[in-house]
Computed example of a mutant assay.
Amino acid sequence: MTKFFTKTAAAALIAAAFVAPALAQNASGTIQLKGNVALSCTIAVQDLGQSLALRTGESNKTVGSVTETCNSGTGYKITLASANAGKLKSGNFTINYTVSYDSFAGALTSQAVVDRATAQFNKKSDLKVSVAASDQYIAGDYADTVTVTIAAK
């Protein structure tokens, strides 16, 4: 029986010698995770097809709706520009008007800029127009085009 016990004990000691270092070792590795979100600024402009009552005037009449989306972490800018420098035109005749869009209110004699400090998603804003009433406007079909642009900062 002593021989059997000795062989068994020796085998156990040998097995323990191989297991012990494996349990005592620490090993590690790293896996890097990477990804990218592309810059995306979009704008959807809806012309409501409104006709302005020029002789009787208009006050903050909603003529368009704009949906802004821009994922720039530093924000973005909305630019409003008039094709006729803020005037409705019929041939050589003009009628002044003003617009209101969020924080901007005034004439579009030059580009108007609305500054957004942070990213926005599906932000809806209305473009409103005001025209002073007058019975001295010259007859004609008056028009202008306002272009709304979005750009990341």
Rank of each mutant, 00 (worst) to 15 (best):
I138P: 00
N122H: 10
N71E: 02
T79H: 03
I43T: 08
R55W: 06
Y97E: 07
Y76G: 00
A53Q: 13
T2K: 13
V63S: 01
V129R: 03
P21F: 11
G49C: 04
N84P: 03
S82T: 01
G73A: 00
I31V: 15
V66T: 01
A139T: 05
A15S: 11
F5L: 13
N26L: 04
T56D: 13
A17I: 10
G140Q: 09
A151E: 13
A152E: 08
T149I: 11
I138L: 05
N96A: 14
K7R: 13
A117I: 09
S28F: 09
V148K: 05
A12K: 05
C70D: 00
V113L: 11
I78Y: 00
G35P: 06
A27V: 14
G91N: 07
F104R: 11
A133L: 07
I43V: 14
A9G: 09
L33S: 12
K34C: 04
L88N: 07
L13D: 08
N36S: 15
A85H: 09
D115E: 14
K153P: 14
T56K: 12
L127N: 01
L33I: 15
Q120E: 15
S72Q: 06
V99A: 07
I31M: 10
G140V: 02
T30Q: 12
V37Q: 10
I78K: 00
G140W: 00
K124L: 10
T145A: 11
I138E: 06
A22L: 15
A20T: 14
N36E: 15
L108T: 08
S28G: 14
T42M: 08
S130M: 04
T118Q: 14
T69F: 02
N36D: 14
R55G: 04
G73E: 00
L127H: 01
L52A: 04
A81P: 00
T74M: 02
K87G: 00
T147W: 04
N26Q: 08
D102F: 12
A132F: 01
R55A: 15
T67H: 01
Y142A: 03
V19Q: 05
A151P: 06
V114G: 05
I31C: 04
A10P: 02
D47H: 06
Q32C: 01
N122M: 11
I31Q: 13
K61I: 02
T2Y: 11
P21V: 14
I43Q: 10
I138F: 05
K7Q: 13
A105Q: 15
K34L: 10
R116M: 14
N122K: 14
D126L: 11
F104T: 08
A151G: 10
A105F: 08
F18V: 12
L33H: 12
I95E: 06
Q136H: 12
L39T: 03
T109P: 05
V63F: 01
Y101H: 06
V99R: 09
V129C: 05
S51G: 11
A85P: 01
V19H: 04
F18S: 09
L23E: 06
S82P: 01
A132M: 03
G49T: 04
S59F: 03
F104Y: 15
G57K: 06
I150K: 02
K77R: 09
Q25R: 13
T109V: 10
K3R: 10
L13N: 06
E58W: 00
V113T: 14
Q50P: 00
S110R: 07
K77Y: 04
T145H: 03
